[in-house]
């Protein structure tokens, strides 16, 4: 009995050995045709969560269903209806682009031609390299091929584990555009990434840290929930600047952000006061301007709150 949700996760927990709590009571759901982002630093538990949903790993506690099927009992059903892209390139490097695609199509009892429609946009870019061995492709091309192979059997749910890690910025952008198009074909997509700037491209995002989900919402709402005054500051000595700003009493947090340091404040304060503070610390070339909060600021804020 498929429920209305593509993925439903209830209080999922997983431990490795005694000390590592990879997942702690994680709950969320992903709707059909939704692009759901799982954002978090390395070691946060993203891969563990995705592997449990892909039926490769058994959770210690909690429930999870994919397309209404329980991951433990109906793993076989799930395996024929999901597309999974592991974090590590997992296609046959000694087979050509076309041979890989054909192999994965056939073992799902399908053919390239049958679902060509679904992958056409992506595959046209690979077509010139059809005869090339997968191992000889560039990083971005490899990811596109892996996506094609994950899609070739027309899955209802796509699980992508850090698909853009180690991919150049242009390919990363192209990849996300492809995901946007797939969404329109009613495929639910769960994608994990360590890059916070990719969060704004998702319908909803969950921030994961140390096995816990910190916040689940639309990217816009997460940003608007950030209510502290924010300033962008730079001086000639950026390294010392961060240290000095973190020691600044009215300050809440300070993080490097491009060529500036973003300083969030506990309460509004005149920029002149900060200028005077920094000048007192012998900084030169001081530049202070108000900044627009981004999703990264919101995440940094959430993560610091968790630590404290």
């Amino acid at each position: 009995m498929p429920t209305s949700q593509a993925i439903q996760v209830d209080n999922l927990s997983k431990r490795y050995g005694k000390d590592v709590q990879a997942l702690a009571q994680v709950s969320f759901e992903v709707g059909r045709g939704e692009l759901f982002g799982l954002i978090g630093p390395d070691g946060a538990g993203k891969t563990t969560l995705i592997r449990i949903l892909a039926t490769l790993l058994l959770a210690d506690e909690g429930q999870a269903t994919v397309n209404g099927w329980e991951v433990r009992k109906n793993y076989r059903k799930i395996r024929s209806h999901i597309g999974y892209m592991p974090g590590r390139f997992s296609l046959y490097q000694d087979l050509s682009v076309e041979e890989n695609l054909r192999f994965f199509a056939t073992i799902f009892g399908s053919t390239i031609e049958e679902n060509y429609e679904l992958i056409r946009d992506i595959y046209v870019q690979l077509e010139p390299f059809r005869e090339r061995k997968a191992g000889k492709l560039s990083g971005g091309m490899k990811q596109k091929l892996a996506l094609c192979c994950a899609l070739i059997h027309k899955p209802v749910v796509l699980l992508l584990d850090e698909p853009t890690t180690g991919v150049d910025p242009v390919s990363r952008q192209e990849f996300w555009e492809m995901l946007q198009r797939l969404k329109e074909k009613d495929i639910a997509i769960l994608v994990s990434t360590p890059y916070m700037d990719e969060a704004s491209l998702c319908d909803r995002v969950a921030l994961i840290q140390k096995g816990r989900l910190l916040s689940i919402d639309q990217p816009g709402k997460i940003v608007s929930a950030f209510d502290k005054p924010l300033l962008a500051i730079r001086t000639n000595d950026m390294y010392r600047l961060i240290h000095d700003l973190r020691a600044f009493e009215p300050g809440h947090s300070a993080f490097p952000f491009g060529e500036y340091v973003h300083l969030s404040l506990r309460q509004p304060i005149w920029p002149e006061a900060i200028h005077a503070y920094l000048a007192g610390k012998e900084h030169t070339g001081i530049e202070i301007k108000p900044a627009q909060a981004t999703i990264e600021d919101a995440f940094m804020e959430l993560m610091t709150r968790e630590v404290m």
């Binding site: 999974y84 592991p86 590590r88 799902f108």
Partner: peptide
Amino acid sequence: EIGTIEQINVTPI
């Protein structure tokens, strides 16, 4: 070792 088994394991094979 190469990791291809990860992809194979998620198929109906």
